[in-house]
């Protein structure tokens, strides 16, 4: 069976399911993990699920707007990760830890 026929057999719904599953894995990770770096990775996973879905819809409908959106998401996600990692480094300098479970100073 050649690869082309496999891809032809894939419906748009398969892409929707795949990216929804990826998105939910990321979501679950954000809600359960405690390490700030891992949280950042989970958020990136969610963003990549979004990218996959946009590209799938874009190719399915023959419309370029979705792919334009993906470019913007990738660029902004990079900028966001840069700022986020800088913040995590700042925290690490002060507390020697990146565990968000230790942040209990603010509550009430």
């Amino acid at each position: 069976m050649n690869p082309d026929s496999i891809f032809n057999a894939l419906d748009i719904s398969h892409y929707i399911y795949l990216s929804s599953v990826l998105f939910c894995i990321g979501l679950f990770g954000v809600l359960t993990r405690r390490n700030a770096i891992v949280l950042l990775m989970c958020i990136e996973l969610m963003l990549n699920a979004v990218n996959l879905l946009f590209v799938a819809f874009s190719s399915y409908m023959g419309d370029t707007a979705g792919q334009q959106f993906v470019f913007f998401i990738m660029v902004v996600a990079a900028a966001e990760a840069a700022v986020g990692l800088a913040i995590i480094v700042m925290i690490y300098r002060n507390t020697r830890s990146t565990d968000v479970g230790l942040f209990v100073k603010l509550k009430g």
Partner: peptide, 21 residues
Amino acid sequence: SNESAVKYFLMGAFSTAIFLM
């Protein structure tokens, strides 16, 4: 201030991902 920055960042990025979905 550190704590609020990291909380704001994680929650902001998380909500952006939901919004983008």
